[in-house]
Amino acid sequence: MKKVYETVALGYFALATTTLLLSAILLVSFAVWEVAASVFASDAEIVDRVRSLLDGIGLMIIGFAVVEAATFIAEEELFRKRELRSTRESRRSITKFITIIVIAASLEALVMVFKTSREQIPEVIYPAALFASAMVALVALGLYQWLSSRVERESD
């Protein structure tokens, strides 16, 4: 039964990784298409071109996060093929995953600030809240690292 589970889980993780990578490629393709269509549109105003460029950057950032998540899954579940054996290894994996989220959220908040600050100043609160959430996650990660390193030192 364990062998069946391991085979099914391996297949699932391989399928999930492949699907995530294909989705990221599609996101980047759509971003390039949107930016190119906007830049080469003869009747587009500069504001519309900038908005399309920022939308394309947002899609690329999401694609970046998706690729990083796929890489994380592949490294943790497909290539290593083992359980987390130490607290150090567990801490490294959690740190990597949360870092991916913080970077993606911060970049998306930055793009959103640029988009909303041009025309909709009251709407800047939403990207600011996203950025604040990313910073809270970063501080929480630092606290987790500090506490877990202390526990690790005490157990050695």
Rank of each mutant, 00 (worst) to 15 (best):
G11I: 07
I46W: 04
A69G: 12
A137T: 11
L107D: 09
L141Q: 13
D43Y: 03
L15K: 13
E83F: 10
W146A: 13
E68P: 04
A36D: 09
E6M: 09
M60N: 03
L141W: 01
A31F: 00
E123N: 15
L22W: 10
L130D: 04
I57H: 02
V35D: 05
G58T: 15
L26A: 15
V50D: 06
S106H: 03
E45Q: 12
A137C: 13
A105M: 11
A137Q: 05
A16N: 04
A31K: 02
S42Q: 14
L84N: 08
T116C: 02
A41M: 03
F131K: 10
A132D: 00
V124T: 15
V111Y: 02
A109V: 05
A9Q: 11
D48Q: 13
S42E: 14
V111P: 05
E45F: 04
T87F: 07
S38L: 00
P122R: 09
S42H: 12
V47N: 13
S106V: 02
K115F: 06
D48E: 15
W33E: 12
E34R: 15
I125W: 05
V124I: 13
E45K: 14
S148K: 05
P122W: 09
R88N: 07
R80Q: 08
A41L: 02
F30T: 14
F114C: 06
V50F: 07
I61Y: 00
L22A: 13
G142C: 05
A74W: 08
E75H: 04
V67N: 06
S86T: 15
R80C: 01
S90K: 09
S93C: 01
S23V: 09
L147M: 06
V151A: 10
I57Q: 01
S117Q: 05
E89N: 01
G58M: 15
R80S: 11
L78Q: 10
I98Q: 03
L53P: 00
Y5E: 07
I62T: 14
S117L: 02
E34S: 10
L26N: 12
A105T: 10
E77S: 06
Y144W: 08
G58D: 15
I61D: 00
L20G: 03
E77F: 11
S90G: 06
F114A: 15
A24R: 13
S52F: 11
M112T: 08
F79K: 11
E119W: 03
L21D: 04
I103R: 01
T19N: 03
T87I: 08
